[in-house]
Design a protein around this nucleic acid. Structure first.
Lengths: 91, 91
DNA sequence: CTAATTTATCGAAAAATTTAAATAAATCAA
DNA sequence: TTGATTTATTTAAATTTTTCGATAAATTAG
């Protein structure tokens, strides 16, 4: 992972709402639907959409359309690559 | 590490300049002085100060006064704690 | 088909971050 | 002591991000 990508991932992780979304996905065992977030998060629907989009755009999560609904799942690989980058910063 | 702290660390890592500073510290083998950053980074001195402050405030780096100069070194422990937090997001 | 539901997009306001000029504070050199 | 050097702070402008109302698009239920 190059610095530019690491910067984008860091930015995606630099927000309580988005961290909460990631934790919700984990809690749901990779079976979280967008609708569920409307209940969990205290935000308007377009705001949630905006946050989710950043996680999808950085490939931290996958989104899969399922009828009217969209299901989110975690991209463990991307998190691992990010972790490797951070490890690489260490002395 | 709690979510609030992870958010702050992510925010500190979410900027090219600050990632460059961390890489410079690594390159210098933990012996980077503030003056050196003025040459490496293409930014005004107060801007550099602002970025360094964020890294110090989040305890990602230590700063040690040395006469007129300030030396920076990496806090590997904080990076490790952050990595653990990210690991914890995985399924 | 029509109405309801779910997600996405657009546009604008509010909030946060980045940047640098001006200047202060601390330390060193002569 | 005086002047030069290094770092920190204040303030303000520019930029970016967050938020939400309005609305569109897609799908399902009846």
């Amino acid at each position: 992972m190059d610095t530019k990508k690491a910067e984008k991932i860091s930015k995606a992780l630099a927000d309580t709402t988005r961290l909460t979304i990631l934790k919700e996905i984990k809690k749901s065992k990779d079976c979280l639907y967008c609708v569920d977030l409307n209940e969990t998060l205290n935000l308007a629907q377009p705001s949630i959409c905006h946050h989710v989009k950043q996680l999808v755009d950085t490939e931290l999560i996958f989104s899969e359309k399922n009828g009217r609904n969209v299901r989110y799942s975690l991209n463990n690989k991307m998190l691992d690559e990010y972790i490797s980058f951070i490890e690489g910063l260490k002395i």
